[in-house]
Design a protein around this nucleic acid. Structure first.
Length: 110
DNA sequence: CGGGTGACTTCCC
DNA sequence: GGGGAAGCCACCC
């Protein structure tokens, strides 16, 4: 059985270029509703190398990563075409919604 | 086992 | 829109 990291990473990898999702949504799509903090924890861990971590943001499209890391994240997102307005991502245009339902969730994890 | 921590979220003022 | 409170859960001491 895949562990926490693997499930979360598999889900994050599903987020297409130019789109973004939230910690809570990723947690839900990975099968861990309510584990938003663990998503953040998984991303900052060493195993996060190679996954599009920048596409995961806070509820409402806010970047929660503090300091320069946050600026870097915004830069990476703008580079791939994610639209910002004010300090937030325009989620109405750029949010990626995971397909839900049993089979589809298996696809997310697998 | 208990307590502190955090790239969270939601609700309420 | 800022700020506090509560709920959340894996990790580390």
């Amino acid at each position: 059985m895949a562990g926490y990291f693997e499930n979360i990473q598999a889900v994050v990898r599903r987020i297409p270029r130019g789109r973004a999702s939230t910690y809570g949504e990723v947690a839900r799509a990975a099968g861990y509703p309510g584990a938003a903090r663990q998503v953040a924890w998984a991303l900052q861990s060493a195993s996060a190398a190679g996954i599009p971590w920048q596409r995961v943001v806070g509820a409402g499209g806010r970047i929660l990563l503090p300091g320069e890391s946050g600026l870097h994240q915004r830069f990476l997102l703008e580079m791939e075409g994610v639209a910002f307005s004010g300090g937030r991502i325009q989620m109405n245009r750029c949010e990626f919604k995971f397909p839900y339902g049993k089979k589809q969730r298996e696809r997310n994890n697998g």
